[in-house]
């Protein structure tokens, strides 16, 4: 028997809950926001190194074109693309544009589909 003082029993197994498309777009917005946040100090490092000399600049470019560099860039591109698309969606919904359930479902789906496509483009083509 559970003693009354123990933390109350709750059902909150996220795998057993069916999440609507809006919730998936939302958690992806959060994940992408965290990825971008982690990228921020790295971005400052890249900025510092890129300005040191033409040689450093070219070394950074070579690193970006390597396999791991391309993968990281593709992940960052997904994060930025999803975050920006979902962000625009949020900003519009905040002022009442597309905040009805049917439209919100459609825009959530659009952001979730478009961001990987943009990332794939970078993966295949490179950024420049």
């Amino acid at each position: 028997m559970r003693t009354p003082s123990s933390t109350p029993l709750k059902f909150l197994n996220l795998w057993q809950i069916r999440f609507p498309i809006g919730a998936i777009a939302s958690i992806a917005h959060r994940v992408s926001g965290v990825l971008l946040l982690i990228a921020l100090p790295l971005l400052a490092s890249v900025l510092a190194r890129s300005l040191q000399s033409p040689a450093e600049f070219d070394a950074l470019r070579a690193a970006a074109a390597s396999t791991s560099g391309t993968l990281i860039l593709a992940l960052a591109t997904w994060a930025l693309a999803h975050h920006v698309l979902a962000g625009i969606r949020h900003l519009l919904m905040d002022i009442g544009i597309g905040s009805g359930l049917a439209q919100a479902r459609r825009s959530a789906r659009a952001a979730l589909i478009a961001a990987p496509i943009i990332a794939l483009y970078v993966l295949v083509r490179g950024l420049w």
């Binding site: 999440f19 609507p20 809006g22 919730a23 939302s26 959060r30 949020h90 919904m93 905040d94 009442g96 905040s99 009805g100 359930l101 919100a104």
Partner: peptide, 22 residues
Amino acid sequence: CRTIMNCTEVCPKGLSPSHAIE
């Protein structure tokens, strides 16, 4: 509230709490 809209998705009366929050 992060405008996830799970509330509006499940309201059995077809109401939109997320719209009220907005």
